[in-house]
């Protein structure tokens, strides 16, 4: 499995390095990046290739209510106990590189994340695409007794039990994002990701590869329709199971974004109750075809230093 992971990491990084080299040779005419392909670094549950200018601090509030299946009785999930919230801070120490920290209610995750926009699409199309890498490390902060008696290892020689250690709480998400601003009103992105949990229940996989598709359709000066679709793939060759039990379901979300000079507001309906990407790709059991949609919103605030 270690070799597999290195291979996937290489696949994620190589295209970026190759493209950087190719376009550097075309640097005779100055061609500057396109105007804001997205209004924010966030697009519902996904990241965009957009990173604010160097020295920017960003505060993020992400909130999801419970599912809408109970209708008026819990006001379409607003009164539901199944809500989730994340508070995050991001900082841009150098242009095109951002680091972040977040706290999420579900599983008491603390996440550390980083995003690097390797390539920016340019106005004269010298570089036709934006390419970014995003990585997140999350720590499950729940009380130790949440995890039961500890880890169990089954082998031909019987069963061994181990205590939970700190690193068992870790989960990782790495993603390659490719985007293009097609017109002033249409920007689309596609992505591929690798998710790993250091510890999962015996009927689950530690690893999950996923595909992502998202975008924005601007319909006024400040407002856009936004959507994302994330698909955890069923890949037998990286699965530890003969048959999948509760394989994670695709995450669909769609909504509206309104942006101002320093804020982006996104209000949407989506399926995943998780907020950090590894949780969405590994644990989403809500199904948008079966009453699994919930209302959510994201608010970002920028400060320039």
């Amino acid at each position: 499995m270690g070799i597999m992971k290195k291979y996937i990491l290489l696949l994620l990084i190589l295209p970026g390095l190759t493209l950087t080299g190719a376009f550097a040779q075309d640097g005779e005419k100055e061609d500057i990046p396109v105007r804001a392909p997205f209004e924010s670094g966030y697009l519902i549950d996904n990241q965009t290739t957009q990173i604010p200018i160097e020295g920017t601090l960003e505060y993020v509030i992400q909130h999801k209510f419970g599912t809408m299946e109970n209708g008026l009785s819990d006001v379409w999930g607003i009164y539901s106990p199944g809500a989730n919230v994340r508070l995050g801070l991001n900082y841009v120490p150098v242009n095109n590189f951002q680091v972040g920290l977040g706290l999420t209610k579900k599983n008491m995750y603390t996440d550390l994340n980083a995003k690097w926009t390797i390539l920016e699409q340019t106005r004269e199309n010298t570089i036709p695409l934006a390419v970014a890498l995003y990585g997140s490390l999350a720590i499950d902060g729940r009380n130790k007794n949440t995890f039961g008696t500890g880890k169990v290892w089954h082998s031909g020689e019987g069963t061994k039990e181990f205590d939970i250690v700190f690193s068992d709480r870790f989960s990782y998400f790495s993603q390659l994002i490719v985007g293009r601003k097609f017109t002033h009103w249409l920007s689309l992105q596609a992505g591929a990701s690798f998710t790993h949990y250091n510890m999962v229940g015996s009927v689950y996989d530690h690893d999950k590869i996923g595909l992502h598709f998202n975008g924005r359709i601007r319909f006024s000066m400040q407002s856009s329709f936004i959507f994302n679709y994330d698909v955890p793939l069923k890949i037998k060759s990286i699965s530890e199971q003969r048959e999948w039990v509760d394989h994670p379901k695709p995450n669909l979300a769609f909504g509206v974004e309104i942006s101002t000079s320093t804020h982006a507001f996104q209000i949407y309906m989506g399926t995943a109750d998780g907020i950090i990407p590894q949780d969405i790709m590994m644990w989403n059991q809500n199904d948008w075809t079966d009453n699994g949609l919930a209302i959510g919103f994201t608010i970002t605030r920028l400060w320039n230093f």
Binding site: R35, M221, Q222, T260, S261
Partner: peptide, 14 residues
């Protein structure tokens, strides 16, 4: 023209 109006709407209008 459109760029100016968009930037004005985003940054100045409020």
């Amino acid at each position: 023209d459109r760029v100016g109006k968009m930037l004005y709407t985003k940054h100045c209008k409020s």
